[in-house]
Design a protein around this nucleic acid. Structure first.
Lengths: 220, 220
DNA sequence: CTAACATTCCATCTATCGCTTGAATAATGA
DNA sequence: TCATTATTCAAGCGATAGATGGAATGTTAG
């Protein structure tokens, strides 16, 4: 005897949601949003054991959020499509808007001050065209090399204070990182504002910029 | 010692996703999308025990997807905002597009034939204005009474075959129900197509129609 | 104040999830 | 063919989530 179609459907939807319901898997998805990668690389970046990482990836694959194919002896995983990205962004939106706990965490990062509104990607593109903004890419160097917004300067997350003196004090600074789950840009903006700079975050990260169809520059 | 902000953030996002990761809670959200309701009513509609239903609702509340307030001796629950609705719809989109299992279930509902593309809400509004479409609301009578698209005719899910002879055979028929998780409209369209009618589903359900800001008619 | 009712809390059991360890599989290169 | 490397599988464990029934809380009506 088969269960009702209604129940079966809900079960499938719950499967997808369940795949998102683990910090480890969200971290993996965020990494994959930066680009396709192999299991070992993902394990290293997220701090998971390789076996554990593989299991999480398979759960994501069962939910059809990611897909993998063999390339030589490695298996390359990537996001199935850009809808997955949208789903992650919306999840973050709901949490940011409604969960007091999230607000507290983000405010903590910004040093207790008010959070400046993030700049939209369209606005940033316009400002970049006019050259009226300094753009910082606050991600690890390898991710920067794999693709970044043209005109961005790569700064390691911990190096903000060190390079701050080289920044023009009168211009506006925009920082971006991986996406809505990433705290690097939050931290960078907080650090810069403490130092008296006029800094804001970009809304979304490089994956969203790319999904918009905007230009991405790779290392020479 | 506090854990890293990064981990804390992901944990909160996972909390929201986890709240969606249960068929019972998805069913509750779908019911709540029809309108605010009290615990006992929700328990009845979803077939859960009252105590169990209450616990699920509190989990949804912890994730800030729903909120509740006391009204007399009852507690009325409702969706926190329309973003919750969007999140549910996107979840269904990802699952529908990517999960073979979902496709099989929906095809089973439609009698194995091809699935006609759902009509968009904007298109339906235009067609309704011209009067060139028959609109069926395939939800229980009480939900129809609580609000429906103007011009819709309420038909109980099992009554399609009975009322079919009263429908014009040459016009196009559009059926809608609760939303992306609801199978009533799928079933209705399948039944009508077997009978030779030109029937399609509406994209989304009444909650989405309402969220668009379109007119909703309540029982006199 | 007391009775009736809606909801929530609590204790309990069971099932499932996530992580670890060690072995198995698949592709490459000598 | 055999050794090497990347990934996956399988078993075991501790922790956690879901369901149930009964007690406790809070609110209204008499």
């Amino acid at each position: 005897m088969s269960i009702s179609p209604k129940k079966a459907l809900l079960q499938e939807y719950a499967l997808v949601a369940g795949a998102l319901a683990s910090p480890a898997r969200l971290a993996l998805l965020e990494q994959l949003a930066q680009g396709p990668q192999r299991v070992e690389a993902l394990a290293g970046k997220t701090g998971l054991s390789v076996a554990n990482c593989s299991q999480h990836l398979q759960q994501l694959r069962r939910a059809a959020l990611v897909s993998g194919h063999r390339d030589g002896k490695a298996v390359i995983y990537s996001l199935t499509d850009s809808t997955t990205l949208k789903l992650m962004a919306l999840l973050a939106t709901v949490a940011d808007r409604n969960l007091a706990q999230v607000d507290r965490i983000l405010r903590g990062l910004s040093g207790g001050g008010d959070l400046p509104e993030p700049i939209s990607r369209a606005d940033l593109a316009a400002r970049l065209a006019k050259g009226s903004v300094i753009l910082l890419d606050v991600r690890p160097a390898d991710e920067f090399a794999a693709g970044h917004i043209p005109g961005a300067r790569n700064v390691a997350p911990g190096d903000i204070a060190r390079i701050a003196p080289t920044l023009a004090r009168d211009g506006e600074i925009v920082a971006y990182c991986r996406g809505p789950y990433c705290v690097y840009a939050h931290e960078a903006v907080a650090a810069l504002r403490v130092l008296g700079f006029n800094a804001r975050r970009l809304h979304g990260g490089l994956p969203d910029w790319r999904a918009d169809g905007r230009a991405v520059q790779t290392a020479a």
